[in-house]
Design a protein around this nucleic acid. Sequence first.
DNA 1: AAAGAAGGGAAGATTG
DNA 2: GCAATCTTCCCTTCTT
Length: 248
Amino acid sequence: MTCVEQDKLGQAFEDAFEVLRQHSTGDLQYLPDYKNYLALINHHPHVKGNSSCYGVLPTEEPVYNWRTVINSAVDFYFEGNIHQSLQNITENQLVQPTVLQQKGGKGRKKLRLFEYLHKSLCNPEMVSCFQWVDITKGIFQFVSKNKDKLAELWGKTKGNRKTMTYQKMARALRNYRRSGEITKIWRKLTYHFSEAILQRLSPSYFLGKDIYYSQCVQPDQEYLSLNNWNANYTYTYANYHALNHHDC
DNA sequence: AAAGAAGGGAAGATTG
DNA sequence: GCAATCTTCCCTTCTT
């Protein structure tokens, strides 16, 4: 991203915030998120968000939701990206290679549901099915409309006889409560990876990075209205993840 | 009232 | 054979 382009994006944000200032009901305490977002882009100019990610998501938030404004700005800047719906993704892109990973060279281990979910959460193609709410705390949320699609893919990955549904997958998730690997939190369709699972599955370099917000969403906010932000956020993270891996 | 989401008991299936 | 890990079915309760 050149300086001129950064200026343009910055200007788009400023314009968007000016609109927000004129219409909001005082939600501007979240301005630091915008700054962090810019910091990420500035610090890693080859990483950029993809506005197309949120084309498939529900748009039920108020017009002047601050995140909507931010995303509008990003969308404006990155215009030209083409919406890629779930229908356009081939099955090969979505279905993970069947089961099994090597473990220390001693035999194979079955792919577990939480591993599949965590892996899929880092796949930008899956934002229409579920997404991070707070990536550093391991909180994620299913998208009501496409949650069964994700379950179906999980079922296919496992090679189940019958079609997997969200209801059945949620039953498996409830079983995780006993082991504590994944717990349900009070929000609709929202779950939480345990610290131990996160440490096991998350890239270690990620956990220490302060460019990621310690909290994407304030507790009293409506998670369901954050799809746009999270879609872009997830996509940006995925790019960052890939590039970091490459750099290392 | 209806639909969706959530919780859980119980039995079955698969796998290491 | 056994334990772990789901999967499947079904019922109830709660929320929107």
